[in-house]
């Protein structure tokens, strides 16, 4: 009996001691590292206040009908249900446009920027640095200025003389002038693909950095084996840059789903909405319009934003699940 009693007393004592042992390292850790944590605090506080709290707040308001100021009506899941019921037709249009944009824009952007990077990475081309700068320059033009430039260049008017420069070129080649992003149907978004090509310089820089990190020994070995340029490109450059391809792919998909650039090419009370603007009406534009142009709809806009997150999560998940083609080094091979 005595033994049992002693043992019973000993267990909490041991737990206490173990707990002290566990706390001590944490205390010690904080004591030893608080300078680092203090330096880190501005970033941590900034992230908390400007990212984490707004994220939580947007989830909270997605259950309300609110203008963020004085209208607060509890809606529970109504905002989420709305997008599949009342708003179904508009959502189908918006999602159709968004996915069309993603499916064409992402591969096009990746391939063109990749080929551009290969070109400016080559030793065959003279003054390659000048080309690198030239291709990157359009990325430095502010988005609004760029939108104004493109709007002017793609201008469609009644007379040939006053058409934008791109239409003048089409007419000079004997082709009919185009309304570009003011067209109806898929042609409008296709104009955006064309515009986006001028921004491929930023992707090119990432590819270049990936190429520079490829072990030169691999190319030397291939040279000894007598491999052609094309063979080296297919068997070394592409496989070794797959981590960067994968990274660019994911970032491009996310960026394309969130795209709101068409706001700059549309006008009106609700840019993008209405039959003339329907061709450029995408999910990001709808969220912006709902939040900032419609009174009392910030809750619904937040629900749409969470829906967008879910779409991005699903697509990113699929990309990760199918990422066996990515080469991370010998260990993963």
């Amino acid at each position: 009996m005595k033994t049992t009693t002693d043992a019973a007393k000993a267990v909490p004592a041991l737990r206490e001691e173990s707990s002290k042992k566990q706390k001590k390292p944490l205390k010690k850790f904080l004591k030893d590292n608080y300078t680092g944590w203090l330096f880190n605090a501005p970033l941590a506080i900034g992230l908390l206040l400007f990212t984490l709290i707004p994220v939580g707040y947007s989830l909270y308001i997605s259950f309300w009908r609110t203008n963020g100021i004085n209208i607060w009506e509890w809606r529970w899941l109504d905002n989420y249900i709305r997008m599949f019921t009342i708003d179904r037709e508009e959502m189908l249009l918006v999602l159709g446009n968004t996915f069309y944009y993603v499916v064409v824009s992402v591969p096009l952007g990746l391939v063109v920027s990749y080929l551009l990077a290969v070109l400016v990475n080559s030793t065959i081309v003279k003054h390659v640095n000048a080309y690198r700068v030239l291709y990157y320059l359009p990325c430095m033009i502010p988005a609004v200025a760029s939108a104004l430039l493109w709007t002017d260049m793609m201008k469609y008017t009644a007379s040939a003389e006053s058409m934008g420069i791109l239409n003048q070129m089409l007419l000079a080649l004997g082709l009919p002038a185009s309304r570009w992003f003011q067209s109806e149907g898929p042609k409008a978004i296709a104009s955006l693909f064309f515009i986006n090509l001028w921004g491929t310089g930023s992707g090119m820089i990432l590819w270049l950095s990936a190429f520079k990190s490829i072990d030169k020994g691999l190319y030397e070995a291939a040279d000894i084996e007598g491999a052609s340029r094309f063979r080296k490109f297919c068997s070394i450059t592409i496989p070794m840059s797959t981590p960067m391809i994968f990274y660019n792919l994911i970032m491009s998909v996310i960026g394309s789903i969130q795209y709101t650039g068409t706001l700059m090419y549309s006008t009106g009370a609700l840019p993008g909405r209405g039959s003339d603007g329907e061709s450029l009406y995408m999910l990001g534009v709808k969220i912006y319009n709902t939040s900032f142009k419609i009174s009392g709809a910030q809750g619904y806009a937040a629900a749409l934003a969470w829906f967008m997150l879910a779409v991005i999560a699903v697509l990113t998940g699929i990309l990760f699940k199918t990422s066996k083609w990515v080469f991370y080094g010998e260990d993963d091979a």
């Binding site: 609700l270 909405r273 209405g274 319009n289 419609i294 009174s295 709809a297």
Partner: peptide
């Protein structure tokens, strides 16, 4: 009032 922007857009679009 939440319909204001949408109504405005619909009417403008009609004339457009």
């Amino acid at each position: 009032l939440s319909a204001k922007a949408g109504l405005q857009q619909a009417l403008q679009q009609m004339f457009n």
